[in-house]
Computed example of a mutant assay.
Amino acid sequence: MQDQDVDVDVADAAKETFTSSETDDWKKYKDDDIMQQHSAIQAEQAVKVPFLGDKEPLSSLEAEYHLGNSIVLEKIKVLSEQYAAIRRTRGDGNCFFRSFMFGYLEHILESQDHNEVQHIKSNIEECKKTLQSLGYAEFTFEDFFALFLEQLDSVLQGSEDSISHDELLCRSRDPSISDYVVMFFRFVTSGEIRKRSEFFEPFILGLTNTSVEQFCKSAVEPMGEESDHVQITALSDALGVPIRVVYLDRSSCENNSINVNHHDFIPTSREVGNSDVSKTTNRPSITLLYRPGHYDILYPK
């Protein structure tokens, strides 16, 4: 079940709730009452879906759109030329961070790239310093950082604490671990946005009429808040991890050709004391599928 499916269920549930009342009763509901009930129904539907599903063949997507837009079905066929499988995530507003979490740890588990692990640990240490310099008390984020580092070490094989792929999936479905790692990512993302506020401010103003600080407090740090281009850019830059996002939507293509667009978020590198930013040439090891309002994990052939 994806976000669009949740929305359908929410709409149906809301309809069932209110059609039993007279039309006049509907008018008595204030907007905030309606939104509160909508959120409650959505939350109830979301918990029925696991944080992370099992890997499925990409063809399973076609069943969701067999009565829908023909352009989407054609795009799924194009996707199947490059990608073999999908892993679904719960549509609870944390799907980007949850997908990134599992995708990255799975990548390290399979690659056993110790140099990359040392690289990301170095970047995490810089993220700590960033938060401290911004006035965050260490006790507010240290547990989240420690837990992610523990998961990172556990996917490296050769010690008594090493875990298998099945154990990684089990841990990623455990709220006491998964939610903590999501909060780790949210703190890292918020710190990066605040540190480079002049860079991110124009993008934030394009999304919402709030300051950088307000944006971080309301749209980045709280659990359940959805992520967009700003959050993905900030997380990729802060951790030094490239991310590919493939977009599956109903938009038509030029000259009646069917293309599936993607964007590679390539982390920036900055010289100490130098404000100039240059792009690296890293190839993304994590690919996420984006459908309006939701992210899942894609697996190349």
Results as ranks from 00 to 15, higher is better:
R87V: 14
R87Y: 03
R87F: 03
R87N: 07
R88N: 04
R88G: 02
R88H: 03
T89G: 15
G91N: 07
G91K: 02
G91D: 07
G93A: 01
N94T: 02
N94Y: 05
C95H: 00
C95N: 00
F97E: 11
F97I: 04
S99W: 03
M101H: 12
M101E: 14
M101Q: 12
F102L: 08
F102H: 00
F102P: 01
G103T: 05
Y104Q: 03
L105Q: 08
L105I: 10
L105W: 05
E106V: 04
H107D: 00
H107G: 01
I108Y: 09
L109I: 02
L109H: 12
L109T: 03
L109A: 06
E110W: 06
E110F: 06
S111P: 07
S111F: 05
H114N: 10
N115F: 09
N115Q: 09
E116S: 10
V117E: 02
V117P: 01
Q118L: 10
H119W: 02
I120K: 02
I120A: 02
K121T: 10
S122R: 15
N123H: 14
I124A: 04
E126S: 15
C127L: 08
C127G: 10
C127K: 08
K128R: 13
K128S: 11
K128M: 11
T130Y: 03
L131M: 14
L131H: 05
Q132V: 11
S133N: 13
S133Q: 10
S133D: 15
L134H: 07
L134P: 12
G135H: 05
Y136K: 15
A137D: 13
A137R: 11
A137C: 11
E138I: 12
E138M: 06
F139H: 15
F139L: 12
T140Y: 04
T140W: 00
T140V: 09
F141Q: 01
E142M: 10
E142L: 12
E142P: 07
D143F: 14
D143W: 14
F144A: 15
F144V: 15
F144T: 14
